[in-house]
Write a protein that binds this DNA or RNA. Structure first.
Length: 180
DNA sequence: GCCAACGTTGGC
DNA sequence: GCCAACGTTGGC
């Protein structure tokens, strides 16, 4: 087996090269963000001012890279309820502000304060997400796992990442399930 | 640089 | 509550 690429490996050589690659004009990419509904639910996002929130407190370098370097304004993301009964994709949101430093990491009083991150050299980033629409019906994790079209979804193939890419085919397959 | 210990996520 | 799959940390 080849060694895992170090974190400094340029994206074009890494496993996620496609999601960081330059875009065609007007190209929109798709993502999935996870939140525990007990902490911040889809309903909380719908109730937020302008149906928008900053997606803060992500403290995983892989997810950070997607937030900082992958997601662009007008990209769409599935909103996934993790640690739920059942865990499921419940809505669609839109990136309304691309990656910028996560200020919660600078705040000693914040539960996710990180003394190694500072405004001059931020370690952690966030985006702003706006609720677009609740899915007609949730698409649950068991359904996702049972769907051949979704067998390679990063959601199921790569656990624990709170922000993951979704391919165009996966995006359409999930929407079809939500409408079917 | 290696790798064991530890912490976290999140399904079940 | 358990535990698998990682990422991170720190001793050496």
């Amino acid at each position: 087996m080849p060694k895992k690429p170090p974190q400094s490996m340029p994206y074009e050589q890494g496993k996620w090269a496609a999601v960081f690659a330059p875009r065609r004009r007007g190209e929109r990419r798709h993502w999935l963000v996870k939140s525990e509904p007990d902490v911040f639910s889809w309903e909380d996002l719908e109730r937020a001012p302008d149906r928008t929130t900053c997606w803060d407190s992500v403290r995983n370098t892989g997810a950070r890279n997607f937030l900082r370097d992958g997601m662009q304004v007008d990209d769409l993301a599935f909103y996934y309820h993790s640690n739920a009964t059942p865990s499921a994709i419940v809505g669609v949101c839109r990136v309304v502000r691309a990656g910028y430093p996560d200020h919660t990491a600078f705040d000693p009083a914040h539960p996710y304060f990180d003394p190694d991150s500072d405004p001059a050299h931020p370690t952690w980033y966030m985006v702003d997400l706006q609720a677009v629409e609740r899915l007609p019906r949730p698409v649950t994790l068991p359904e996702i796992k049972a769907a051949p079209a979704l067998a390679e979804m990063a959601l199921v193939r790569v656990g624990r990442l709170s922000v993951v890419p979704v391919t165009p085919a996966e995006w359409e397959a999930v929407l079809a399930m939500a409408r079917g």
